[in-house]
Amino acid sequence: MDKKNTLVGFLLLSPTLVVLLIFIVYPLFEGLKLSFTDMYLLKRGSGKFIGLQNFIDLATEKKFLLYMRNTAIWTAGSVVGSVALGIILAVQLNKPLRFRSVYRSLALIPWIMPIVTAGVVWRWIYDGQWGILNYVLKQLGIINEYKIWLGDKHLIWISLIVFFVWKVFPFVYVIVLSILQTIPNEIYEAAKIDGASATNIFWKMTLPLIKPTVIVVTLLLTIWTANEFAAVWIMTRGGPADTSMTLAPLVYMKSFLFYRTGYGASIGVLLLLTMIGFVILYIRRVRVN
């Protein structure tokens, strides 16, 4: 009976397994294979096995540390910002407010908007000559002169991260809110009767209750953000002069614009290896949950 069940289980799983094999495992294997070759589409006869040479070239590239640092700043900034904003909003919108459902729906708009559309809109918002952000900040007396948000090395990261946080915080907010809605209101009322302050309630009750979910969401966001291509590419194309180049757009640039597919694949593999740690943590956390 057990054997039969196992067989049926495998049979039922087989369509999914086939899809995974074709669309995940095979491309992954090909990508790995490619990263050990000198494949360069402009060079006839390229594609020979060169061992770890691509990885050595990558590690010794002048801008390697810059790319790694950029990826770390981009990922850490975006994840911390989105998680913090998502939690704050979820907690606020879990309170009995007038028009609460309207606010809850409005908060989802950035998540629904396609990233390309959002990126183009934000590029105009940030434009150094006509951007509305400069206009508003100057009218409010916060800045004296227009800032080049996407061209100034000191402002570029904050600008990119604010955009991406705006784009992805609804994901955190929706999930955290759904958890908050499962916590019985009586617990909060009891805490209030016992004299707990709002701050204490948040840190001592709410946060521990949502912590397992927040950890999972944070891990997922970390993996997604580090792999995010479109947001960086649409906003800055990694510029000016690679100031905002992270590993994901770098893979695209090297592979598809410069045709160095072997080298590009090695950057992809590096990104994959970096992310595997987070994936393991994520899987463990899901099991614990």
Partner: peptide, 19 residues
Amino acid sequence: MSPAATTWEVGGEITSWMQ
């Protein structure tokens, strides 16, 4: 030049001229 030109693609330059 406009400092914003560091972030413009060709469309930005043309828009600036038109504006």
